[in-house]
Design a binder for these strands. Sequence first.
RNA 1: GCGUUCGUAGCUCAGCUGGAUAGAGCACUCGCCUUCUAAGCGAGCGGUCUCAGGUUCGAAUCCUGACGGACGUACCA
Length: 565
Amino acid sequence: MKLKSEINCIIKEAFQKAGIEIQTVMVTEATKPEFGDFQFNGIMALAKTLKQNPRELAQKLLPHIDLTGAIAKAEVAGPGFINVWLHPSWVARKCEEALQDKRLGVAKHENPIKVVVDYSGPNMAKQMHVGHLRSTIIGDTVANLLVYLGDEVIRQNHIGDWGTQFGMLIAYLEEQGSSGSGSLKDLEQFYKEAKVRFDTDISFANKAREYVVKIQSGDQHCLNLWQKFIDISLGHCEDVYGKLCIKLTREDVKAESFYNEDLPNVIEDLIAQGLLKESDGAQCVFLEGEEIPVIVQKGDGGYLYATTDLAALRYRANVLGAKRICYVVDARQSEHFRQVFTVAKESGFVSKEVRLEHVAFGTMMDKSGRPFKTRDGGTVKLVDLLDEAVIRAKESIKDKENLEPEELENLAKIIGIGAVKYADLSINRESNYVFDWDKMLSFEGNTSLYMQYAYARIQSIFRRFGKEIKRRIVIGDEIEHRLGVMLLRFEDMLYRAAEDTAPHHITGYLYELAALFTRFYEQNPILKEEVCEETQMSRLALAQLTGRTIKEGLDILGIEVVDKI
RNA sequence: GCGUUCGUAGCUCAGCUGGAUAGAGCACUCGCCUUCUAAGCGAGCGGUCUCAGGUUCGAAUCCUGACGGACGUACCA
């Protein structure tokens, strides 16, 4: 249900009937309950251009607003606001319709497009660490959201599988022989050991360097070893994805090395476009008004990640056919992307209509405001962090003694992982975010637990009720009215979140919804004896729609729900 | 130095095209369980929206400058 469009249309019609010209009508949610459900602020701006008194203009419009459909009442207020109240019966009917629909009345894009979402992108030489957490979580949500809204989403995991450090790692893997796979269980340890060998043994170091050259020249034996190494390392990532309920699979992997063959062509094509200039021995693209060029080939002939990104961009636009490409990458790389996007457009590698977006996010901080590290200053492995989340969640569960071990384990996983993901998604992605265990595992405030708890309470009602419900809704009071309107806003909110690639709109909405429901739940008894059947059915229907909306919303965020907490 | 970005309650954060008395949660103080999950709900307390100008009917939001922080600043990714 595109609620705002519905109201916009009614008001736009009123303008036509009143003979007043207006470009676009955009209502917003009322800032306070006293001001109704929605408000239209555009009169003031219009009055300015028409040089008319805003209140008089609003008064002229008012009689033309159709009060037979969605809108029950419209009033002029303040300097020229138009406050709008919706018909309770209309809200009720639309909620009933949403309840009948598998998708809760959320339409798919009329013109779906192909969208590439590039996220996670771990480095194969290292274990996944907290630096990959935000990209992985946010990217997966963005992809889920766009899928839900009907776009054809192509997830891309641009793993780092190329570079000089692989020579060292492969040399060490070969030295270890068959036992190598075993010691690779801990990639961090493996890397350290290899590094020690590299630093202390000259013949090993030379061998490592030879391997780099051999891999690059396509030596089959070395490539096999390299492939083996990547497979194992990627397996580690998949363990993390599994724990985190991330939907990335092997099919989504398009490693850096995938673009190797195309890199010389990128250079040639840039030359053909006349964009390339040599500077200090490096091949560069100088952009207008920018001091620092984009270097695409080093003085020694090697390529850089700008080169790979250009190759990837044109592959995605031209081979995959993407019309929108989202890079879910750390905000620190925003200049890099701005430049690479410009080069991609200027060179014609990517046509002008393709929307290129850097979905930037801030750094993860600890409670004291410093970048998130282990006590001794090392990087925190993602596996360890997630395991800790589950342990902490388990400890926080109230009736853990009364649960079966498997039940407890499952519940702890859902709560712990949900908490980590929700905490990340619930703040504006561009700002740095403070990682705080106590806050994220709290039942209070805008947390996944609060939502999961609200959901569980709803399920508890239906367990007790135990029968099929009639999907007939009668809005009985203020709180039910607000709950109904909130439920109908689901679609608008999702579309806005997709447009802004802003998951925190979803969490903010879910929190408001759950909070409203909890108030409704406190005030309006459902299964009590004194409640008449009509009211009971109506309240059950509202509860059911709320439950399904919370579940659907959390599902897009990649967070699970449970029937009992 | 230059560039990007941020600065909202004691803390963590919302605040959509410029709109009404700037909102939540935590913390603190009170009140509400013989009744659907009280891991909940209600009420109170708390703000010169960093500062100074400007644009206008109206600015947390737009512009300029200052101060403070984060990040980036050519052959790493």
